[in-house]
Structures are given as structure tokens and as C-alpha cells.
Design a protein around this nucleic acid. Structure first.
Length: 222
DNA sequence: GCGACAG
DNA sequence: ATCTTGTCGC
């Protein structure tokens, strides 16, 4: 496992925490999410990427990736389980001036290398990590709807943000080529009547549709 | 040593 | 993440 830790540290060194382009220049956002299932004793992952215009969030394109997974779920090592698949799905829809929003941590990670960081570094494109539960860092609980509190290790590595009065906070951190402030700003702009960013929700639905789709094709063809 | 611990 | 129905609350 030391080898994997070293790889994460190496990737973390390539991270840039400055905006590759200004907020006003963002033309698209792409949400990525995954669904898992087993076929016999083997496990598979379906990654879905949904590209939307920004800031109006109109559906533009989508891409999926389906593959077998061999790595187990181990906190802080998520990138080794679903990273390659996520990258492949995003690659299919990526355009200029696009920010990637991933369902996983960015630099709010023990070695500053969460899933969003992996995707952002692999594609050399701005990326943001969004999670429903905290993984790493110190922060205060945002109490009011729309309120955010910084997440820290030594420096600011992200924000805990409360989407609505009844919602628990979501955790936002830069993946690559974006600042914590801009990452939060983009995420807030993609949240409407729901807790999570619209692109992530759409990707979630699509991953599950593809999964069910695949499973039903299985028992009618072998 | 013990607890925490994305999806 | 996945397995699963109804149910309480804003």
C-alpha cells in the first residue's frame, strides 16, 4: 500500500490551486457519478458523465464507461477503485472552458489526492470534489441555509456548505486548477432546488439507468 | 492504543 | 456504493 500512497503524493504535487480561467469564462460543467453491481463473483462499475452549459445548465451531452473493478473500497484510496472509469467517461464529453464536478473529495484528503484531484490531474482540467460526508479537515458546522465554513488542515482546503435549511452540509474542495473560492462559487451556482449540484444528480440518474439497462440485457441474452 | 474514515 | 417500504416532517 506504500506504493499507492507514494503515487498519491506524486499526483498531489502536480495540483494547481489557481483558476485556469475566470468564473465568467466557464462555458460548461460536467458532473460525474457511478453505480456498481455484481455479475457472479465479479464487480463492475458504470461511470456516467453529463455535460451541461453553464450557468444555465442545459443538457448538452453525456458519456458512460462500464468496466470490471478489482480494487476494494478503502477510505482515502477511492481513486484506485473508480478513478480510471470516471476519467474515461468524462473524456468522452469534455470541451473547452469546462469545469468537472466529481462525487468525491478533491484536496480535502490526507494526501491532498482525492478522486476529484485524480480526475483533474489526469485530464489536466479544472475539477471540483463534492461529498455528502466529510473525509478530512477541520471545520465548523454551517447552520444557516446558504452558509459556508472553511475546511482546514494548515491552509484552506475547501468549504462545508449548507444547501437548504433541512439539508445536512455538503463538502466542497478543489480537485485541480481551481481555487477553493471559485470551486464553492461554481457548486453553489449548480445547486437549485436540491441538495447536490444538478450535473451530479443527472450523472447519478444516468449511471443507475445504464446499470439497470445492462442488467436487464443480461438475462435476456445470457 | 483508539476512533474516524469520500463511494 | 448496495440491499429496501413506509413514513415523518418542512
Amino acid at each position: 500500500m506504500n506504493k499507492l500512497v507514494e503515487l498519491q503524493k506524486k499526483i498531489a504535487e502536480e495540483v494547481v490551486l489557481e483558476d485556469a480561467f475566470n468564473y465568467e469564462e466557464i462555458k460548461y460543467v460536467v458532473g460525474v457519478d457511478q453505480a456498481f453491481f455484481k455479475k457472479g463473483d465479479k464487480e463492475f462499475v458504470v461511470s456516467a458523465a453529463v455535460l451541461m452549459s453553464f450557468p444555465d445548465l442545459r443538457f448538452i451531452d453525456s458519456g458512460v464507461d462500464l468496466r470490471k473493478v478489482d480494487f476494494p473500497y478503502i477510505p482515502t484510496f477511492l481513486m484506485f477503485r473508480e478513478g480510471d472509469s470516471a476519467v474515461e467517461a468524462v473524456k468522452k464529453v469534455l470541451r473547452e472552458k469546462t469545469v468537472i464536478i466529481v462525487d468525491g473529495s478533491g484536496i480535502a484528503h490526507p494526501r491532498k489526492c482525492g478522486l476529484a484531484t485524480f480526475v483533474g490531474v489526469a485530464l489536466r482540467n479544472p475539477s471540483i470534489g463534492v461529498t455528502k460526508r466529510p473525509l478530512y479537515g477541520k471545520f465548523e458546522e454551517p447552520k444557516r441555509s446558504g452558509e459556508s465554513k472553511g475546511i482546514f488542515n494548515d491552509e484552506l482546503i475547501g468549504y462545508a456548505y449548507k444547501p437548504c435549511a433541512r439539508c445536512n452540509p455538503i463538502y466542497v474542495s478543489p480537485g485541480n486548477m481551481i481555487s477553493p473560492e471559485t470551486a464553492l462559487r461554481v457548486v453553489v451556482a449548480t445547486i437549485r432546488n436540491y441538495k447536490l449540484p444538478i450535473p451530479i444528480r443527472e450523472a447519478h440518474k444516468m449511471a443507475n439507468r445504464e446499470k439497470l439497462n445492462y442488467l436487464s440485457d443480461l438475462d435476456s441474452s445470457g
